[in-house]
Simulated assay, not measured.
Amino acid sequence: MGEWAFLGSLLDAVQLQSPLVGRLWLVVMLIFRILVLATVGGAVFEDEQEEFVCNTLQPGCRQTCYDRAFPVSHYRFWLFHILLLSAPPVLFVIYSVHRAGKEAGGADAGPGPPPRRRCYLLSVALRLLAELAFLAGQALLYGFRVAPHFACAGPPCPHTVDCFVSRPTEKTVFVLFYFAVGLLSALLSVAELGHLLWKGRPRAGRCRQGAERDGRRHRAHEEAQQLLPPPLPPPPPIPPSRRPRPDDPSGPPAYAHPGPAGDSEGGSGRSKASLATVRQDLAI
């Protein structure tokens, strides 16, 4: 189980940058494939060659018939399947760690997320292709049923030999289970690929919608400006002839406030009357 734990730790690092669908695929991979194959699969298929019995004692005949019945062992075929499926996510983790180190050191001047997203998209596509290829290979090699009887003819067997497989029903159930898990994994990969493609497309659409929204807002502002009344004209300037000059000695001082014309005439009359009264008093 040590090698399975190491592979599981590598795959667990993928979930840090995976969407929800990718994490569901990882759960299916770790539980329904690695865990089931490591605990149950070995016990079901470990004695398949020893318990493959043929009704002959001819040396080499049983081994030849087993090779014809099972060109590749189920257990080893699924091990290779898991390793090949794990290769794209593990390569993506290695690439992400390498790029994060370059960004931390300042050696990479390019933007980080777009290349990383493209690399993850490529890993999902490769994973899907590997899944479909292994599903087709399993259907062609084994079909969907482990037959209890296998008739074998050809050298080194002297005649047609009848061979029998141990626990065919249990192995058939396991083959169907593993094929169903493969279909589920392929569907999750397709959903994740579609999610990543859909997530990348609305980004440009949102930019276009933002530009259209800004254009509508600008047009509405221009229409509102057209509906407003025109601004009032500025007051006419005062002619230079009517402006008081500060250097004119005959004019009033700057601090004097001009009073009403009536008040100035009344004040001069009162001052003349007081002067006449003072002169009469002096004459007496």
Rank of each mutant, 00 (worst) to 15 (best):
A5G: 05
C157A: 04
S189Q: 07
F32G: 02
T169E: 13
L176Q: 13
L11Q: 02
F179R: 07
E51M: 08
P19W: 00
T56W: 03
P236G: 07
K171T: 00
R118C: 01
F144Y: 10
A100D: 09
I238W: 09
L132K: 10
V173A: 11
I82K: 00
G137C: 09
P239T: 03
P246E: 14
A147M: 14
S123K: 03
V27Y: 10
I34M: 03
C54A: 04
A273I: 14
R33N: 11
T169G: 10
P235Y: 01
P115F: 06
A254I: 09
P156E: 13
D247Y: 04
G194Q: 12
L141V: 04
V14P: 01
S123G: 05
C54F: 04
L188S: 01
A254G: 07
T56A: 05
S250M: 12
L183T: 11
V21M: 05
A273S: 11
F70A: 10
P19E: 04
F77M: 04
F150N: 05
D47G: 02
A130P: 03
V278D: 09
E131F: 02
L132Y: 07
L11P: 01
Q17P: 07
A133N: 03
L121Y: 02
R127P: 01
E223M: 08
V278G: 01
G60A: 03
P253S: 13
L35K: 11
G259E: 15
G182W: 00
F45Q: 00
Y178K: 13
E103Y: 00
S241C: 06
G143Y: 02
R203N: 05
L227C: 06
S268I: 12
F177R: 04
F179W: 10
L10F: 05
Y95S: 08
P71A: 10
L85K: 03
A204I: 14
G137K: 07
Q138N: 06
V97E: 06
